[in-house]
Nucleic acid binder design. Structure first.
Lengths: 205, 205
DNA sequence: GGCCGGATGGCACCAAGGTTCAATTGCCGC
DNA sequence: GCGGCAATTGAACCTTGGTGCCATCCGGCC
């Protein structure tokens, strides 16, 4: 697959923005600039994977707060870039998941390295998210009862035990179980367990 | 369980070490001090969970390099403490897994918070490591053939298919499979799959 | 040579999983 | 109310899984 090359630039200094845009576009990145955090939040779509290059100190929504908003949006990796940063600030940013925390004036090589690994991470998160969404889409096909049965099956319980717990007969469980396997498109209990594990489904107590 | 309260102090300034020791011991931590990175590496045992408070700038082995050595030792969480740090240094430290990066003079509350969450993380890593070691100890009970069969079972293959692939009979597979379940102390395929997943065993192709 | 553990195989038996055909009940929306 | 879907149940039938007993073969070790 062709790797995404989207870079979003959020900075309130037009000169710097222009310079960085030129630099990054020269490297083949697809750059889009925003002059404030609010502006970015309004316009950004939750679509492709991208690397966000973010100034920390901006009027309005500052970089670290914007990061919190973006945490809910997978597929975006953040690289901070600031002129007046300090150590606690950088520590907080990285702990909160930023790819890097660069200081102005930034060396061209540093920026490119950070943006590169940011895009890498963004793509990884993005496809992980898509995979997760896929699992949940298939899960949504199940009826409530089937989900319940699924929970017991991945706990390794026998059909008769499940039937007992759910107050029904073994045969009924077999039917549900068969439908679960069919709807989730898995061919064995082993696959089912892996599916459930990836989808974050807890075994029924 | 009683939570570990071991704190290892690595700093080449005896005064600071003494002060921090008093401070931490007053809070109920069990403190042990070392005056160089080499010294620490020689004496530290790979036993309990602990939080290491580490100066970055020390003669001999510096903090960041020591961190690399300690990465191989799970159960240790690192809190950096330094007088002459800069942003790139802190970024590198946190990226490499440090719990926090504090600057001297450190506020008492900051240190205690960092050490507290360091110990928390150390314990989490420590028990995760023990669990992992446990899994591998049980895995070691399996004969090569049994491990092979395990790989196929967690792929969800039927006994007859496994027998075919391994060039033997279905009955033989059943016997191996039974022994695997017994040695790994699991009662169902579901448990077996979860066991293998946690132990990092890839399904047989 | 003799012993032991690992791997293999045959046979029999029972339990559990899985499918098909057929049917009933209850709820929801048109 | 009717059609459709979810949930349920029954019976019959076949496939798999799992166990026990017995037996053979091979390679390493005392």
């Amino acid at each position: 697959m062709s790797s995404s090359r989207n870079v979003y630039l959020v900075d309130d200094e037009p000169e710097l923005t222009r310079a960085l845009t030129r630099l990054l576009e020269a490297e083949g990145f697809v750059v889009r600039a925003f002059d404030s955090g609010d502006d970015f939040l309004r316009q950004v779509s939750n679509g492709d994977a991208a690397c966000v290059v973010l100034d920390v100190a901006m009027p309005g929504l500052d970089g670290l707060r914007l990061q919190q908003h973006l945490a809910a949006m997978p597929g975006l990796a953040i690289v901070f870039l600031t002129g007046h940063g300090d150590i606690p600030m950088s520590v907080q940013a990285i702990k909160a998941g930023a790819v890097d925390f660069l200081t102005k004036p930034v060396k061209r090589a540093d920026l490119l390295r950070a943006v590169g690994s940011g895009l890498e991470r963004a793509q990884a998160m993005h496809s992980a998210m898509k995979a997760h969404a896929d699992l949940h889409a298939r899960l949504a096909l199940l009826t409530p009862r089937e989900r319940e049965v699924l929970g017991h099956v991945i706990s390794g319980r026998l059909n008769k035990i499940i039937a007992d717990r759910l107050g029904t007969t073994e045969h009924t469980i077999k039917v549900h179980r068969g439908r679960v396997m069919e709807k989730l498109a898995v061919g064995s209990v082993a696959e089912l367990v892996r599916f459930a594990q990836q989808a974050g489904i807890a075994p029924e107590s």
